[in-house]
């Protein structure tokens, strides 16, 4: 049975996610130190994975889940690399 967007719940859900993205972006802009910005980027990567899965649901195509899978595997390498750089390793 294909999924169709109707009713109030998808709108509330997307609104909550967008508020989360905007709050993370505000912390990225004002964050006093560099680790604050790295934390904001980490939160944005996880929210992006969820947005990819939800878009796969809204478009009703299973192949779109592969993008989220690749992102879930690879997205943390950027954050770990930057954290190692801050620490003085790398």
């Amino acid at each position: 049975m294909p999924y169709e967007i109707h009713g109030l719940m998808p709108f509330i859900y997307v609104g909550l996610i967008m508020l989360g993205v905007v709050f993370s972006l505000i912390r990225f802009l004002v964050g006093p130190t560099a680790p604050d910005r790295v934390v904001a980027t980490d939160i944005l990567t996880t929210i992006t994975t969820v947005v990819l899965v939800v878009l796969a649901l809204f478009f009703d195509r299973q192949i779109y889940l592969d993008v989220a899978l690749v992102y879930a595997v690879l997205a943390f390498t950027a954050v770990v690399a930057i954290a190692r750089f801050l620490e003085g390793g790398l």
């Binding site: 990567t45 990819l52 478009f59 779109y64 592969d66 993008v67 992102y71 690879l74 390498t77």
Partner: peptide, 30 residues
């Protein structure tokens, strides 16, 4: 620039190009 690549990946998915989105995710993230 990592954030830009993240959101560009979502936009490629919305434009119905999942292969480009996978490439953007792999290259832009790592």
């Amino acid at each position: 620039s990592a954030i830009v690549s993240l959101i560009a990946s979502i936009f490629f998915l919305v434009l119905q190009a999942p292969d480009v989105a996978i490439t953007e995710a792999a290259i832009g993230a790592g």
